[in-house]
């Protein structure tokens, strides 16, 4: 196996707040290989988002080591190692969809012709080719989130960090976007780190499921998915799928009982 894309070793993070300190991450060790699709699941306060933010260099761990592409998270960010998708699309209302996707490219100093081509490719990847000239308010919530994924893909980073990207969408839209995300992952071969609080979503998408539990935030189980790479939506009714989902649920329950 090649060197891991993300390597965490005994990661610790304590937030100092007004009424005492919060132990957000405790002794988190995890290796993520190239091209894996890793979901982080757990109740709120389990540190799944915090871990993602540490990988992105948005939070600084108070202990342990964390490497992204063999570099510190800050260096990895400077090297444009990852694209980040937030829970809300966060598109700029004053920019068209194409303008929003071009935003990281402008900041990173891509040439204008290159920008136009990359925007076109990124929008095609999320099936928004015909909406380049539209403003965000003219698109549905699901389409806005797809545009924000295109924005994260535009500069072709190897890693995609997604923090509950479909959490605010309804079940039907979410199913379709999950299917599209898998197709996108298969086509691009990117390494995915995906935070969710939905068990079916985690099982359906992932090659590896990291179950986390709160107070302090820690990993309670890591499940390598036995599901095949090709996953139609109805795989969710298969015995294998249900078995994995059951193990995730057991892991979540064990984490809660340990409190």
């Amino acid at each position: 196996m090649s060197a891991p894309v993300v390597r965490a070793e005994g990661l610790d993070l304590t937030f100092a707040t007004g009424d005492g300190s919060v132990h957000a991450l405790s002794d988190v060790s995890l290796d993520i290989g190239r091209g894996e699709f890793v979901s982080f699941i757990g109740p709120s306060g389990c540190g799944k988002t915090t871990f993602l933010r540490c990988v992105a260099g948005l939070e600084t761990p108070t202990g342990g080591t964390l490497e992204v592409n063999g570099m510190s998270p800050d260096a990895a960010r400077q090297a444009r190692a990852y694209g980040y998708v937030f829970q809300a699309a966060g598109l700029y209302p004053w920019r068209t969809i194409a303008g929003n996707v071009a935003l990281p490219l402008e900041i990173m100093g891509f040439a204008k012709a290159d920008r136009r081509q990359r925007v076109e490719e990124a929008l095609a990847l999320v099936d928004l080719g015909g909406f380049a000239g539209k403003f965000p308010w003219q698109l549905s919530g699901g389409m806005q989130q797809r545009a924000s994924i295109a924005r994260a893909l535009a500069f072709d980073a190897d890693i995609l960090l997604m923090d509950e990207p479909f959490g605010a969408l309804d079940e039907i839209v979410r199913d379709r976007l999950n299917e599209e995300l898998l197709a996108l992952w298969a086509r691009t071969g990117k390494t995915m780190l995906f935070v969710t609080h939905s068990i079916p979503e985690a099982v359906y998408l992932s090659t590896k499921i990291v179950v986390m539990s709160p107070r302090p935030g820690r990993i309670s189980d890591v499940i390598e998915s036995p599901l095949p790479a090709e996953r139609p939506l109805d795989i969710r009714d298969s015995a294998e799928f249900i078995a994995v989902a059951h193990r995730v649920r057991e892991g979540l329950r064990a984490g809660m009982e340990a409190l």
């Binding site: 948005l58 400077q78 444009r80 990852y82 937030f86 966060g90 935003l103 990173m108």
Partner: peptide
């Protein structure tokens, strides 16, 4: 904060 975080991920 999310908007500012997004720009931080671009190292703006």
């Amino acid at each position: 904060a999310m908007q500012l975080d997004l720009l931080r991920t671009y190292a703006a």
